[in-house]
Write a protein that binds this DNA or RNA. Sequence first.
DNA 1: ACATAATGTAAAATATACTTGACAAAAAGA
DNA 2: TCTTTTTGTCAAGTATATTTTACATTATGT
Lengths: 64, 64
Amino acid sequence: MKNLRLKSARAAKDMSQEDLAKACGVTRQTINAIEKGDYNPTINLCIAICKALDKTLDELFWEY
Amino acid sequence: MKNLRLKSARAAKDMSQEDLAKACGVTRQTINAIEKGDYNPTINLCIAICKALDKTLDELFWEY
DNA sequence: ACATAATGTAAAATATACTTGACAAAAAGA
DNA sequence: TCTTTTTGTCAAGTATATTTTACATTATGT
């Protein structure tokens, strides 16, 4: 399923997918795919995303 | 680096690496490697581990 | 001491995360 | 409109997560 928390946190920082991708050292397509929800990133990438957006793993990736 | 929080949470549940592996649908070697810290699991596996151990992502995998 | 369970580790194979390059569509600004 | 940025998506390639099989070592119990 889509990760709307991620999309929203990125919007709150006024970053494009490409901005976030560069900040995390991955490509735009990877960020796009994660937001779209069609795959399963590694924990290190999740942590990099969280740090770029000033969020924690639980805030962006935990399934309640 | 080693993931001692994971090792400790597993001990608190009195589960072997193999017990936890089965609960998560992966192999014992994968759990061993994650505890040893020499690789980078996917977020879905991290979530499965957390649920098996009644912990959250921040408790087991967040880097402070 | 002996048996058994649990852990550490390694090489080869497979599955899948992630990249690269590219193009189209939608959104935003002038 | 017109231009530019942003997003969506796809196919083919590369890097790496995970499996399988296997063996050695360390702990635990009797």
